[in-house]
Amino acid sequence: MLSSIVVEKVSKRYGDHRALAAVELTLTAGSVCALLGPNGAGKSTLLGILSTLVRATAGTVGYLEGDRRRKLDDRLRADIGLLAHSSLCYGELTAVENLEFFATLYGVADGAARARTLLDEVGLDGRARDRAVRTYSRGMVQRLALARALLARPSLLLLDEPFTGLDRGGALALGARLGQAKADGAIVVCVTHDLEAIAGVTDHVAILVGGKLACDERDPAGYSYAALRERYHAHAG
C-alpha cells in the first residue's frame, strides 16, 4: 500500500516541445487530487509519468510506502490503476473477456468473479458486457475503463478525464466512487475539466499552466464547485 508520492522537479520534453517544467508535488494517501489546467498544460503527461510508463527527462518520482522508497519494478506497477484517454481495452473482446485477461496479467485471483463484481459496481449493463467493446457507446467504454483501472485494487488511482461521456447521474456516482477510494486510503489523482463533478470529493487542488504548477493547495474540508471555479479562474484564467 503506497502512502505517498513525491514528485521532485519533474520535467518532460518531447523533442523541443516542453510539456512539464520542474514540477514539485506531493500526493498523500486518502486524498483526491484534482489536477486542473487548460488543454496542453501537461496534465496527461504528468499522469503518464506517475504511471511509470513515461520517463521524465529530468527529476524523479518517489513512490513511498511509509518511509521506504519502492523500487521501480514489475510489482510497483501492480499498485497503479490507470484510466486513460483511450480505453486500454480490446475492441474485439467483450467487457468480461477484457477484464478477465487483465486479471490474469495482474495476478488477480478469481478474475471472473472480480470482473462481474466490478461491472456491477460501475453499472455496465448485463447484456452489454457480453458484446464486443467496439460496439459500446462512449459512456459504456468509460465505465469499462474505470472497472479496468480498479481491477487490482490499486493504491494509486490515476484518472484522465473520467467524466467524459458519462451523464450527470453517472458522473455523480463516479464522484462517489472516488470518495470511497479516498476513504479506503488510496491516492487518487483526477485530471478533469468537469469542476462540478469533482467538487465535493477533492481535497487537493493542483493547477498546471504551460507545464508549470500554478497552484497547489489542500483543504481537508473539501472544495465546493464555486471554490474550484474561483481558483481555476484565478490561475488559469
Binding site: 516542453r18 520542474a22 529530468a58
Partner: peptide, 13 residues
Amino acid sequence: VRERGLDAGILEP
C-alpha cells in the same frame, strides 16, 4: 544543454 534549459524552465520553447 538546450534540453536542460527547457527542463529548468529557463529557456522558452
